[in-house]
Design a protein around this nucleic acid. Sequence first.
DNA 1: GTGGTCTAGACCACA
DNA 2: GTGGTCTAGACCACA
Lengths: 128, 128, 128, 128
Amino acid sequence: MPWDFNSSIPIYLQIESMIKARIFSGEYPPGSHIPSVREIAQELAVNPNTVQKAFKDLEDSKLILTMRTSGRLVTEDIRTITQARQKDADGSVKSFLSEMGKMGFSPEDVLAALKAICEERRESGGVC
Amino acid sequence: MPWDFNSSIPIYLQIESMIKARIFSGEYPPGSHIPSVREIAQELAVNPNTVQKAFKDLEDSKLILTMRTSGRLVTEDIRTITQARQKDADGSVKSFLSEMGKMGFSPEDVLAALKAICEERRESGGVC
Amino acid sequence: MPWDFNSSIPIYLQIESMIKARIFSGEYPPGSHIPSVREIAQELAVNPNTVQKAFKDLEDSKLILTMRTSGRLVTEDIRTITQARQKDADGSVKSFLSEMGKMGFSPEDVLAALKAICEERRESGGVC
Amino acid sequence: MPWDFNSSIPIYLQIESMIKARIFSGEYPPGSHIPSVREIAQELAVNPNTVQKAFKDLEDSKLILTMRTSGRLVTEDIRTITQARQKDADGSVKSFLSEMGKMGFSPEDVLAALKAICEERRESGGVC
DNA sequence: GTGGTCTAGACCACA
DNA sequence: GTGGTCTAGACCACA
């Protein structure tokens, strides 16, 4: 199971992130078929309604399309994908900086800390 | 009002962050009295119970002490304060990097983006 | 009603003890569902918030887990249960001995008194 | 300071216990003078009203007498002292056994644990 | 159905 | 004045 039942983040949002990650990473390429609600629900041992809710959001953001006859497809519009990814990233960065700022960390602190962490992880052979 | 009524983040957690920020910044120095539940409730136009809930969590983390009938004090143990701040910061960084990683951003991407944002903000005269 | 309304011990702490006793005794076995906040509130004729408060503490001590929309479970980690019980017991014993010590009772006095009481209770058919 | 400001036990009760302990132990012998409210308040760095409250309770239990002209005395009636001590002890034992019972410890468990603890303490040279 | 949050407000013990 | 407890009850997100 790739997610955390105990997290305070709702499961449907965790599923959304997972699908997005697969689209952004190219695991689900533009124009490709996406597994059905049932398949994903089974893969994650989750109620199909929950998966449905995640798909609904992804449709609203145009990342996926529902073809009434043949399931769901990842959008073929690469710009839509790129922009969604950028928007999510901007949001993450913004709230991250805001949090750190509240704790009194200067931009320099943050940058330095990130550099250190990345170095460290790379040395131990992982990714950042 | 230093907080966002419309945020999906519970008010009591926002209050916690606010108090922490004041402790970390030295506005509430180690060993000093912090305003009473009633005072903060009034300051924020919030129910006293909500403030109490925030304080309970801060007590659990040892950042503040309760002297039952004479209010609450910031801990005098500076290490507790430093460590709490560091722990919060580490948590923020860690989950930030994890989010960005899921979206397929390499560490270099993240660093570059942060640098760019900070530059930009600094040029327009703000802080990062 | 398994608890004492008139006791000076807060109701939520009495509820905590009650739930713990049920976990320790195996009435709520590891991994099993425990009744919902609403059910227990009704069982005890108490406000749901009061039950919630008790549950919060039990969660903090890892004895129970919250599955947000499907209720709460007793931890499956038997060691957590055993240790919590032992820790509570040690605390009781320690503070008991300390109290008795302050009153000037020697360990021998205490042991003798306990033996006597147990004998007495057992003779009258009860448990100690 | 012989007591714990942070304890949830009210200070006046902690003071009561302290005075009682001194009476039971003979540090304040029957018929002897007791330090004045002011002296004790100063010794403990506490508001005189709080000490007053403790004394009030001790008077109610006849352990101490107020001689309007010459301060307070420990009662000369040794039976009163002995009985108060016994009553306190009985209360402690009773609530201790009740607590342990709720946690599912049999009388034998409790006795065995106490014996073990006492042995241990005595071996390390302390009192039980 | 589940748990979580929040309000309005009463009442208490304590110092 | 301080913090702590408790109720009654509304409203929310989630599954």
